[in-house]
Design a protein around this nucleic acid. Structure first.
Lengths: 213, 213
DNA sequence: GGTGTACGTTACCGACCGGTAACGCCGCTG
DNA sequence: CAGCGGCGTTACCGGTCGGTAACGTACACC
């Protein structure tokens, strides 16, 4: 989640004849910069001029690569979701066939991420706050993402064979999203997010007991 | 939480001589309108021109009542917190001396609020997404609010005499904030927020058992 | 050497942003 | 009646927004 590059490089590439596979295309620089700025300062908080400048380019070059700011934002959200699932899958893949450990791994990974300096919660979730027009195409993008997250948690809860997998999955989603939401205000792991993993464990136990009761 | 008035009234007040205690001061109209628009469309998504116009006034009159947009936003956030604690206290007051029922009443009231058409989650929490400058005075306002919420939940959990009141309180805060956050995307009570109350109950039971174990 | 393409630069557009100056009107109060 | 405060109106300021037109240039490839 979120990008790392911070731009400002002065086109250092012209030494030898054939750089391995590096095409420092302006489009890529602009897109990476945009991802970082959107995440850090919000979608409405960054203009295309600022993005292009921060990428060492200018507005005209921006519009040669992107049809509009809206198109860029769309691509940004799609990229964030892509990275999010990579992150999710890598956590889950550590414990194949063990849904309980997979869930725990997700909350462990979330806490790790929260401890990052650049962490500013969930990019897609934050976008849901900024995009107030529910008819907007971006709204649907975010909605679809959240529904996919919910479904995955339902599936994980279902693999635990509890009586109420939807209830447990939803509860886990509240813990996760609550973690992202509160992280915006409480730095590092100093906030309630530190309680997410033990709470998730307790909830799993509770819902398991409710099944065998 | 959130305002109810929708503006557009054409100054209907001049019939009888003495309206009970009504001073339809422009300032109040503007402020009410601002609260509603900020909550619905976001702080950055509404300009002072739009606010004044929607209140049936104009920008100049706005600046006669408010020093700046920032001052208005500050007042908006303070008002939202005020209304929030009124809401909180009225839920808690229904079960004096019964912390468990108080907590349940809070989640019941949250679900009721979520079922409202105008609900767009937590005003202060949403503001935390929009205000990205952590040095900003508004940031501190939101931070203080969230810390007060956290403390109150710690106290409620403490009244339950569990071994780990901070852990339980934080977990409850994750459920609440997760509810507000997901509500932005899932309309009414169709989202994970419906699982908040049963999850809170299960968590309370789990943390109570962990104390007597 | 010619050509195409990727990119930078400058200038501009209409719209809106937060904020201000100056003026005029209306109604309440002394 | 005079005066004054509350308020609406118009015009304006510098800045930024998303987006475009026209031009210049460096380089790669045939």
């Amino acid at each position: 989640m979120s990008s790392k590059q911070s731009g400002m490089s002065r086109d250092d590439e012209g030494s030898s004849g054939a750089p391995p596979a590096g095409k420092t295309r302006v489009r890529d620089r602009i897109f990476d910069t945009a991802c970082e700025l959107f995440y850090r300062r919000g979608i409405h908080g960054v203009g295309v001029d600022a993005i292009a400048a921060e990428a060492g380019s200018n507005k005209m070059s921006f519009y040669r690569s992107f049809a509009s700011k809206d198109a860029l934002v769309t691509e940004y959200l799609r990229e964030q979701e892509r990275e999010y699932w990579v992150w999710w899958d890598s956590a889950v893949a550590r414990h194949p066939g063990e849904p309980r450990r997979q869930i725990e791994a997700l909350f462990e990974a979330q806490l790790e991420f929260a401890n990052t300096k650049t962490c500013r919660g969930c990019a897609l979730g934050n976008a849901a706050v900024e995009i107030t027009d529910e008819e907007d195409a971006l709204s649907n993008l975010v909605r679809d993402y959240k529904e996919r997250v919910r479904r995955r948690l339902h599936e994980l809860a279902g693999a635990l064979e509890v009586r109420d997998p939807e209830g447990l999955g939803d509860a886990l989603m509240l813990l996760m999203d609550g973690g992202y939401f509160t992280r915006l205000v409480f730095p590092g792991a100093s906030g309630p997010i530190a309680a997410a993993l033990p709470a998730a464990r307790a909830l799993i136990d509770a819902y398991l007991q409710a099944s065998s009761r």
